[in-house]
Amino acid sequence: MRPGELIAGDRGARSLREGDLARAWAVLEQVMDPEVPVVSVVDLGIVRDLDWRAGHLHLVVTPTYSGCPATEVIEGDIRQALEQAGFAQPALERRLTPAWSTDWISDQGRERLRVYGIAPPQGSASKRSLLGEAPQVCCPQCGSTHTELLSQFGSTACKALYRCRECLEPFDYFKCI
């Protein structure tokens, strides 16, 4: 799409523009988290907004953790995927507010995490779950609730390390935040 086409106010241009946003979302559905390559940036809920500004796609991206080392990689992957799909020079805006929450992970994303072997976050990221009360975490391998926390911090900042006391497998739990 050329910038000039956006200026035109007729219905044809408008429907094209709406169609392109849907296509852009479809492209983003294919951009996977580099550390959990089964969930997309849309599943994770980190793409907060998508619209057209001055002839270019404008995205708002909210990082998961302040120190997440994947933030730059994800932004680069998003940019590359959109440009390959024909969206020239997409503008990415990094926004901290409101802070990202595991509540924003889609149902599809949760199921994909579980199948991948990572227990999805249980319940909502309320004050209660942050302040101590242990969540009931199901083993992603055998489904047992007979699990125990090994460490609040797992292989990445967003995960805790658990062990299943039924099948004895250790696993990551995507903790509520």
């Binding site: 953790y65 911090f153 797992g154 900042a157």
Partner: peptide, 20 residues
């Protein structure tokens, strides 16, 4: 190993916050 991961993860959070 679990403590190593925890120490590094906390450090990573803090360095990210420092950058902000």
């Amino acid at each position: 190993l679990e403590e190593e991961l925890a120490l590094m993860n906390v450090g990573l959070d803090l360095v990210g916050q420092a950058r902000n």
